[in-house]
Design a protein around this nucleic acid. Structure first.
Length: 119
DNA sequence: CAAACAAATCGTCACATTGG
DNA sequence: CCAATGTGACGATTTGTTTG
């Protein structure tokens, strides 16, 4: 029997609260905005049986319930990973933007210093 | 080429977080 | 509360890369 796994104690890996400044096009600091744009993307999945005999209700309990949970969790995990990837992509994009910003500010600073020198 | 290794992806579990 | 949902960790599987 495997030892019980413990959850990481800290807050969620993504969307740290502190310091989210420059808004990149298509990238928001808001985690919610990483949501899929079409919420209708929920795949009907294998609904072969529920239309076949929807007359039964309490009978489809123990196994069906578990399968449903597993299916939903599978989907949730996919979505979670997708969001995480997107979040990282945006962070990387932000790095590029900030790096460029830094370069041009350095450039500007250098120019201003030069002006001061000749005076 | 295939075998070996590394990286990416996936499903599941356990726990955390959220919404009713 | 607690049921539903989100997410980190883990192991298994798949996919890509290197090496003899």
């Amino acid at each position: 029997e495997p030892p019980p796994r413990t959850q990481e104690s800290g807050g969620s890996l993504f969307a740290p609260k502190e310091y989210v400044q420059p808004t990149l096009p298509g990238c928001t600091s808001d985690l919610a905005s990483y949501q899929l744009h079409n919420p209708t993307s929920s795949i009907p999945q294998c609904s072969a049986e529920d239309s076949a005999h929807s007359s039964q209700k309490p009978i489809e309990k123990p196994l069906e319930k578990r399968e449903l949970r597993l299916m939903k969790n599978r989907e949730a995990a996919r979505e979670c990973r997708r969001k995480k990837k997107e979040y990282i992509r945006c962070l990387e994009q932000r790095v590029v933007v900030l790096e460029n910003q830094r370069k041009s500010l350095m450039e500007e600073l250098r120019a201003l210093k030069d002006i001061h020198k000749v005076e």
